[in-house]
């Protein structure tokens, strides 16, 4: 086991312990685990099931029901494009298309192969006053246009290249 994996595993045990292995806390447990791993690896879900004394199918069922849970690793930058009503009438679709074209992604295949970007559409980020809204990780960008959104992406690409 690599040190990182060992560390993560320690975290995992702590999370389960903190919630007394209580199956009623499953959603909160999965949320906290996802913060450690950035997604929910299959073997981890099985481990959680055993620890909580429920079937892996139950854990998997919950994990697939809620859109917040990811079964595949997400990119380092998660771009959440709001497609709530307010953003939709202010033409959020054009922004989505521009971003997808630039990053060569689509709805099914939404994480770039280098693991840098994930594009998701979400319904209403609660910032409708700034529609259309794009959220990149925790940062909200309001009154977006396809050009402005692409600029943000270019900035990140530049940053990442400089790091290498």
């Amino acid at each position: 086991m690599s040190t990182q994996a060992a560390l993560n595993f320690n975290n995992l045990c702590e999370i389960l312990e903190k919630h007394n292995n209580d199956p009623a806390k499953l959603i909160t447990i999965l949320q906290e685990i996802q913060e450690v791993y950035r997604y929910l690896p299959e073997d981890i879900m099985t481990f959680v099931a055993t620890s909580l004394g429920i079937s892996p199918a139950k854990v998997y069922g919950v994990a697939t029901f809620y859109s917040h849970f990811a079964l595949k690793p997400k990119g380092k930058y998660v771009i959440k494009l709001c497609d709530g009503t307010a953003c939709h009438v202010k033409k959020s679709t054009a922004i989505l298309e521009a971003l997808q074209t630039r990053l060569g992604l689509n709805e099914k295949n939404n994480t770039s192969s280098d693991g840098i970007f994930t594009i998701e559409t979400v319904s209403c980020l609660g910032a409708c006053g700034l529609a259309p809204v794009v959220m990149i990780n925790e940062e909200v960008h309001g009154a977006m246009t396809p050009e402005l959104a692409l600029k943000e992406i270019d900035k990140i690409i530049q940053q990442e290249e400089n790091k290498q």
Partner: peptide, 11 residues
């Protein structure tokens, strides 16, 4: 839970 896309009063 405020899920209605286009509403943010509860928030």
């Amino acid at each position: 839970d405020e899920g209605d896309p286009g509403a943010f009063m509860d928030r």
